[in-house]
Each structure stands twice: as C-alpha cells, then as structure tokens.
Amino acid sequence: MKRAFYFLLTALVILTSCSTPKLAIPEQFSSVSERMHIKGLNGWMINQKLTFGTYKTSKVKRGWNTKTTRQDKNSDITSEERIMKLFNVTNTNTTSNQKQKYQYSIEDGKQVAEVFCSERMTSEELQVFTNNRWLGDFSQTKNYQYSFTAAILPMSVKEEPWQLVVYNNYDKKKDTARKWFDLPYVEEEGMATNGKDTIQIKPLRVKNITSKDGKERQFPVKILGGYELRLDDGVIGVIDSMGHALWIYKELDEPTKLIVASICSALMLRKIQDVNG
C-alpha cells in the first residue's frame, strides 16, 4: 500500500509539472564530463535500437518475458498470518518469478562489444481475502529479490569479458521503515568487473531534480534518479534514468568509455522494473 502511495505521488508530481525531470548533476562533475542524450527508449519497441553520443546499439533481441506464480509451502510465518489464522481470515502465500533475457551489440565506430543481459525478480506475497466488499482483498510483499546481470564481451583480443550485477533485496522482517514517508529498507548494490578492474554502480536516490526550464524542484520522498559509476573511488559516469542521459567523464580511455556505455544501455533497456525503481 505504501509503495502504491509513492507511485501515485510520484506520478502526480511528474504529471502536474508537465516537464521531463532530470537529475541535478553537480557542477564539479558536469564541467569535466560529456552529456549524451539516449534516444530510442520510448515509442515502438520492436527492433529497438539505442543511440547516444557516438554510441549506437544493434537491434535488441529480446526473449520472452515470462512470469509464473504458485503457492509456496516454504514461507516464513509472520505475525499478520498468526492474527489472520485466529480471525479465520483466508490467506495464501504466493511466490512469483519473472524473467527476461536480451542481447545486442554496441559500437562507437571503432570498437564493438556484445552485451548479454538477464533480469530476474522473485517476490513472495501474502494474499488476504477479507470477504468484505468495503475492505476488499489485498496483498502484502513479504520479500523480493531482484537481480540484473549482464556479460559484456568487448570484441578486442586484449580486453577481458566484464560481468555486471545489480541487485535489490527486500525482506519485510528486516524493514526499518515505520513512518508514512519512510522508504522501505532495500539492500541494493551493483558492480561490473573484469577480474582486474571493478566499477561500482551506486543507485542515486534523490529529492532534488531539475525541470525542463532549468529550475530545481523537490520531491517529498527520495526516488530513484539514476546510477553513479565509480572506478578507483572516482566518479566516471552518471546515468540519468529520469532524463534519459549518460554523463561520461571526458578523460576516460576509449575502451573504458565503451564499457560505461554498455553498462548504461544494459541498465536502461531493462523491462522488469524493481519495486522501488
């Protein structure tokens, strides 16, 4: 219910402002980086291609987006379930699995990389049937595990393959959110590595955004605005998922820029959204 509220609130703020919000990038980083607007994220999704800056992807080949739901006997017993059992309220535990795979290649005219991606979301819900027309039936998320993983294979003899992982893990029993505007406690982490170098991928949850007219606005709650990419403790890129843009550090070498562009395109092409995202 809380998440539904956040969703409605976010949608309302976006709709009333009537402009595409963007991530507010600090001057220190924007002055030394290049902004590339990502085209191809909206509209017709068949034969989808992305272009940004000098980078362009091939047609994105997608597998089936499958979702299965079934009851699961291996489930933690919550206090809610104990109470419902006492009050003879019908409830069931269901586990749903959603998966999708896609692949494409990305190039900048000189270098090419093949990108293979896989997304998976498993969530366990408590479904309650109140048999009351005013209250209706409702469900509550007990836990979910969202993981996005990709293999980036640069088509160069010298380059090692990169593995990318971004995940979110939520467990209601470990949630620290108590107040109305508290965000649920979600453990989230991301990284890409080739065994030698590691790029840390940190989700950016922001309140301040920049509207199309350049004015700074504030959301009542923090929302996922994008991702910050760090290499050797220095920021090398920022993915603005609201403004559909990639900010990339100008001084990076070309092979690393290609990896950053691959990470950005792989993340932006996801279809199974995490609950907070």
């Binding site: 299965t68 079934r70 699961d72 006997k73 291996n74 586990t95 699995n97 293979f116 896989s118 998976r120 498993t122 836990n143 595990q145 969202y146 993981s147 993983t149 990709a150 293999a151 393959p161 593995q163 992982v165 995940y167 893990n169």
Partner: peptide
C-alpha cells in the same frame, strides 16, 4: 554465456572452515 550470469536466491548456505562450500535453494520453485 549464462555461466557469466549471477542471480539472487534465498538459499541455505553451507559453511565449512569459514568458507561457503554449498547452497540449496529455499523456495520450492527454485
């Protein structure tokens, strides 16, 4: 290529001499 993919699972984690040596999925579906 799937061997490069890693995913989150709820699982029983087996440890021996401080090292993870095995795991088994907790969910019936997995």
């Amino acid at each position: 290529i799937d061997t490069l993919f890693s995913t989150l699972y709820m699982a029983y984690q087996f440890r021996y001499k401080g090292e993870t040596i095995a795991a088994v999925a907790y969910k019936e579906n997995d």
